[in-house]
Amino acid sequence: MPLITLLTDFGTQDEYVGVMKGVIAGINPDVRIVDISHSIAPQDVVHGAYVLAAACPFFPAGTVHVAVVDPGVGGARRILAIECGGQRFVAPDNGLVERVLIRQSVTAAVSVENSLYFLKPVSRTFHGRDIFAPVSAHLAAGLPLAELGPAVDRDSIVSGVVPRCRFSTPVCVEGVVVAADRFGNLMTNIDATTIDRLAQRATGKKLIVDVADKPIGGIVASYDRVPRHTPLAVIGSRGLLEISVNSGDARKALSAGKHDTVRVRLT
């Protein structure tokens, strides 16, 4: 049975998500639809990119992922259909698939331009309904990517939108908070592999984590390694450094949030 996932910043207050599902069902009634999230912060492409990349490895080959965090809707930005890692992605060309493409080689990519597979008329503000939903339904039914439009060169796909961590000195990795989850945990762009590289230089030294210039301490294995209501740093399920508070909300307790600087340093 074909499978489509949806990731948007639409929320659930309005009809947007339900209408997309209705369009998909009208074209391909046999498809299963799985909601990854509709709580991406409005217009937050970076947040969407991290959530999409964290989720897609856990879906079977052949899944069609529809990602609509699209502040440029109705403008000059392209809509892409991409095949990589045995899955297909339909998303605006604005960096939303950047994290996915870092991990997977692209088998095929096209610019979605064939209006035969769009709803008519196409709204200027709701391409999720009029383009993304019907295109994904046709793909899940077996439509080849090449039918949707001209091929796109991998190097032309928008990148550089998602911030990356870096070694600011030989003994310090610097990154940023990219999002907070509903528990108030602060997700960073510092990955476990980079921390391991830093740790290899740690002979006689210890790792210390700072967020917004506030020292948190070292990296612990689990939340309960510190007392309740105490800040901590941990490698989360996405393989990224997270700043948390045991049984609390790090965003509130530390007065920290998106774009704040995070450092992992040797001392």
Rank of each mutant, 00 (worst) to 15 (best):
I4Q: 05
I190H: 04
A81F: 05
A41L: 12
P42L: 10
T261N: 12
V97Y: 03
T63M: 05
G75C: 01
G184M: 04
F89N: 09
T8M: 01
D249M: 02
F59M: 07
R154V: 13
I216Y: 06
D181Y: 10
V64M: 10
V23W: 02
V23N: 10
V68I: 11
I79E: 08
I40S: 07
R265H: 13
H47A: 10
G248N: 09
G75I: 01
F118I: 04
D224Y: 13
I33K: 08
E15D: 15
V68Q: 06
P227L: 07
P163V: 09
K21N: 11
S237W: 07
I216P: 10
R228N: 13
A108S: 15
V19K: 11
L232P: 00
K206A: 15
I208F: 12
L254M: 07
T12L: 15
L116Y: 15
G74M: 05
A212D: 12
I36R: 05
H229C: 00
D249I: 08
V69I: 11
V69G: 01
V69P: 08
M1W: 12
D181G: 02
I40W: 00
R197D: 15
G85T: 05
S136D: 02
G72W: 04
T230A: 08
V171Y: 12
S136W: 06
H229G: 03
H65F: 06
R238C: 14
D153P: 07
A55P: 09
A256L: 09
V162F: 06
A192M: 11
L198D: 12
G26L: 02
V162R: 12
D44Q: 05
L240T: 11
L96Y: 03
Y16F: 14
V97F: 05
A81N: 04
S247G: 01
F59I: 03
P71R: 09
F132Y: 13
R77K: 03
V226E: 02
V51H: 00
V122S: 05
V23Y: 04
T230D: 03
A81S: 11
E15P: 02
I243L: 10
I190A: 08
V135A: 02
T8Y: 00
V234Q: 06
L101G: 07
D93N: 11
P121G: 08
V64R: 00
I4R: 03
R197L: 13
T194M: 15
L241G: 11
Q43A: 14
R78H: 00
K206C: 12
D224R: 13
I36P: 01
I36G: 00
G217A: 00
F167Q: 08
L186W: 03
A179I: 02
T230W: 01
R263N: 06
V209Q: 07
R99Q: 11
L254H: 05
H38T: 04
A250R: 08
R265M: 09
R201L: 15
I102V: 04
F167S: 01
D213Q: 14
S244K: 08
H127V: 01
S168E: 12
V176N: 14
P2V: 09
D130V: 10
I4W: 07
R251Q: 13
V51D: 00
G160W: 06
A180Q: 07
G62K: 09
K252R: 15
T230N: 01
S247P: 03
G184S: 05
L254A: 06
S247F: 13
T5E: 04
V178D: 06
R265L: 11
V161E: 12
